[in-house]
Amino acid sequence: MTNIGIVGTGVISGTYLDHLAKLPGVQVVAVADLDVSRAQAIADKFPGIRALSPDDLMTDPDVDIVLNLTIPAAHAPVHRAALQAGKHVYGEKPLAVDRAEAEPLLKLAAASDLRIGCAPDTVLGTGTQTARALLDRGDIGVPTAATASFVTPGHELWHPAPEFYYQAGGGPLLDMGPYYVTSLVTLLGPVRRVTGRAGRAHDQRKVHTGPRTGQTFGVDVPTHVTGVLEHESGALTTVLMSFDVWAARLPRIEIYGTEGSLSVPDPNAFDGTVEIVTATNRDWAEVPVAGGYAGAGRGVGVADMARAIRLGEPHRADGALAYHVLDVLESLLEAAAQDQPVDVASTVVRPAAVPLGASPEST
Rank of each mutant, 00 (worst) to 15 (best):
P104F: 10
R99H: 11
Q84D: 15
A96I: 02
D62E: 14
S112V: 02
A76I: 07
P61A: 08
P72K: 04
A109P: 10
L83Y: 02
Q84E: 15
P61T: 08
A109E: 06
L105Q: 05
V78A: 15
A73I: 14
L114M: 07
A109S: 09
V66L: 06
A73W: 13
G86R: 00
S112C: 06
L108G: 09
L108Q: 12
A111F: 02
L108I: 12
H75D: 01
Q84R: 15
H75E: 05
K93T: 10
H79T: 12
L95I: 09
L83G: 02
N68H: 02
N68Q: 03
A85N: 03
A73L: 12
N68I: 01
V78Q: 11
A109W: 05
N68G: 00
Q84H: 15
A85D: 04
D98Q: 04
L95K: 09
V63L: 01
P72A: 02
D64V: 13
V89K: 01
V78E: 11
K93S: 07
D62M: 13
A109R: 07
A74V: 13
K87C: 11
T70A: 03
D98C: 07
H79D: 14
A109K: 07
K107E: 05
D64W: 14
G86I: 00
A85Q: 03
A100T: 13
L105Y: 08
K87V: 03
H75G: 06
A73K: 15
K107M: 13
D98S: 08
A73T: 14
E92Q: 14
L83E: 04
T70F: 00
A76Y: 07
R99D: 13
A102Y: 05
R115D: 09
N68V: 02
K87M: 11
D60K: 08
P94R: 04
I71V: 15
L114D: 06
K107T: 10
L106H: 13
G86F: 01
L114P: 06
A82G: 03
S112E: 06
L83K: 00
A74Y: 11
N68D: 04
L114Q: 06
L106C: 14
I71R: 15
L67S: 14
A96R: 03
H88K: 00
A102F: 09
V78F: 12
R99T: 14
L95S: 05
D113F: 06
A96C: 04
A110Y: 03
L95T: 01
I71S: 15
A81Y: 07
I71E: 15
L105M: 12
A73N: 14
L67W: 15
K93H: 12
G91K: 00
V89N: 04
L95N: 04
V78R: 09
